[in-house]
């Protein structure tokens, strides 16, 4: 899992530095997924021990699946989804208005008049 996260980060960063807009968006998405996975595996991943408390003890003992990162990841996924949707629509609009998907062409806002 850790290796997969690392790979996703690497691929995401590489794509983000690409001058094609579509590749950039895919890079952003991959980075988002990488961060979500990172958050997910930051607590120890365990199998079949849900964080359920028995009514008699009230306290979790021993190893258990940490519910906090799961809750965080769930929220982060939803937010990431919204952002990606916006980014894709923006990209489409930019392509429509400027007629190019090459980031190197989109430098007029940085130039001096």
């Amino acid at each position: 899992m850790s290796i997969l996260t690392g790979l996703l980060y690497a691929a995401g960063l590489y794509l983000m530095l690409h001058k094609g807009m579509v590749k950039m968006i895919i890079g952003i998405m991959m980075l988002g997924y990488a961060s979500n996975l990172f958050l997910f595996i930051i607590a120890k991943l365990v199998r079949g021990i849900p964080a359920l408390v028995s009514p008699s003890t009230y306290i979790m003992v021993g190893e258990y699946a940490d519910p906090v990162p799961q809750a965080l990841v769930l929220t982060a996924i939803v937010i990431g989804f919204g952002i990606q949707a916006f980014a894709i629509v923006l990209l489409r609009q930019v392509y429509r208005r400027t007629g190019t998907a090459d980031m190197d062409q989109l430098n007029r806002t940085d130039k001096l008049d």
Binding site: M16, M21, M24, I28, L31, G32, A34, S35, N36, F38, L39, I42, A43, V68, P69, L72, A76, I83, F86, A87, L90, L91, Q93, V94, R97, T98, M103, L106, R108, T109
Partner: peptide
């Protein structure tokens, strides 16, 4: 047109920042 050009840079860098932020939250939690 110019607005969209500016916006795509703004969006890209800020989404990147959010990703880094999220990873930072993960490290702090860990």
């Amino acid at each position: 047109k110019l607005q969209l050009e500016g916006a795509i840079k703004y969006v890209a860098i800020n989404v990147f920042a959010s990703t880094i932020f999220l990873a930072g939250v993960g490290i702090i939690y860990g």
